[in-house]
Design a protein around this nucleic acid. Structure first.
Lengths: 206, 206
DNA sequence: CGTGACTTTGACCGTTTGGTCAAATGCGAC
DNA sequence: GTCGCATTTGACCAAACGGTCAAAGTCACG
């Protein structure tokens, strides 16, 4: 694998194909459930060829998690401490719901990882993630103290946003099985419901 | 394996040890991540001995899922159509939260299964689960029509209860990583938060 | 067109995995 | 105690797995 600054056209094409294929396979089967052959086939490469670009199955997985972590946290980062509290929170919820709709594989990749005890990314959870949540929880607390939204536990508020939004990606099969008529998109109703829920919880009673 | 009515003492002891061990191993590693040797060791048996009681790894998994499905649905079954709406819903939430606290492995077993597309229990989701939810959604709808709780989408109301309560079992590692101080039990605060959330969403404005 | 670096591959290896089997051992009823 | 059945085990197997390697093929560039 090329170590120098130069990245060739083929390198870019193949690493892209590998990460795409790995996302597909890891998110559907978990780390141990995925095989290198599966990923290679999905990427249109032979197994040794794939291992020419990544040193190991573990390395592909780590690379995916690291790359996607930012994508996953950005919606929260964008919550503006200077904006209108209710608008900021609802906009955050909408962004997370969009992410669940548009990137369900990414969501399931993390779900798989965390359900099984986060063996590969526990340090990131305790570091980067905790720091970001600590910061945003302070903002939420300030908004509550200023009387601009109702007072609730700020950390659990964030947990509940994660939980409700990611549910529609991670448990998509269950949602569709229960709703029946697998064709119809559950997201519009989900958005209306979740927005209503947080509005009623956080809005001040006039 | 004994096919007749008689079940020996040893059979009961060993099948119990196997299901307990399998729950531990499957919930922590997923189906493909778990090995028969691991389960056998955890059950205090040799691998061939374990396979004397269950014909295959798949069979143990199926048996676990089937056995646990009822445990998992019972809290919802108990919701009384004749009771007070708000009390019934809040009691259901408390039961689900208790289940997440007391049976996190069961929750993670289902989470693993569903995140990966429910390959082993999709029929059950579309049958037994859907039927139960359909029935209870009707009850919720009636309560709303009678003006005893606020009007929201009944199916998404149930989804949100599942999502919020099971989050504390399935994503326990993340919750603890973000809250820091891994010793303290997050459940009391979680219960207060979740109960507040649903109370504010569903209570009628006086 | 030639050359050196980049890319691809088939054959291969050691390990792990789910599962089998015949033989050995243990147990309980008579 | 002994007989029949239940239980347990070590040895074993074929397939699947992650990964290696030397050799062959291909690309870009002077």
């Amino acid at each position: 694998m090329n170590q120098t600054a130069g990245t060739t056209r083929i390198q870019r094409r193949n690493t892209a194909a590998i990460t795409e294929a790995a996302l597909e396979v890891f998110s559907a089967n978990g780390f141990r459930g995925a095989t290198v052959d599966q990923i290679a086939k999905a990427a249109g490469l032979s197994k040794p060829n794939l291992l020419y670009y990544f040193p190991s199955k573990e390395a592909i997985h780590q690379h995916l998690l690291a790359t996607l972590m930012d994508t996953w946290l950005d919606p929260l980062r964008e919550m503006d401490p200077e904006g209108d509290p209710m608008e900021e929170i609802l906009a955050y919820i909408r962004r997370k719901l969009e992410a669940s709709r548009d990137f369900p594989r990414e969501s399931r990749l993390f779900a798989n990882e965390i359900v099984q005890g986060a063996p590969h990314i526990l340090p990131t959870l305790e570091g980067e993630l905790k720091d970001l949540v600590d910061e945003k929880a302070k903002v939420l607390s300030r908004w509550m103290e200023e009387g601009r939204i109702q007072r609730v536990h700020p950390y659990h508020l964030i947990f509940s946003i994660w939980s409700l939004t990611q549910h529609y990606a991670d448990f998509d099969v269950q949602v569709r099985a229960v709703l029946g008529s697998g064709d119809t998109d559950p997201f519009p109703e989900a958005e209306e419901y979740v927005i209503t829920l947080f509005t009623r919880m956080l809005a001040l009673k006039p």
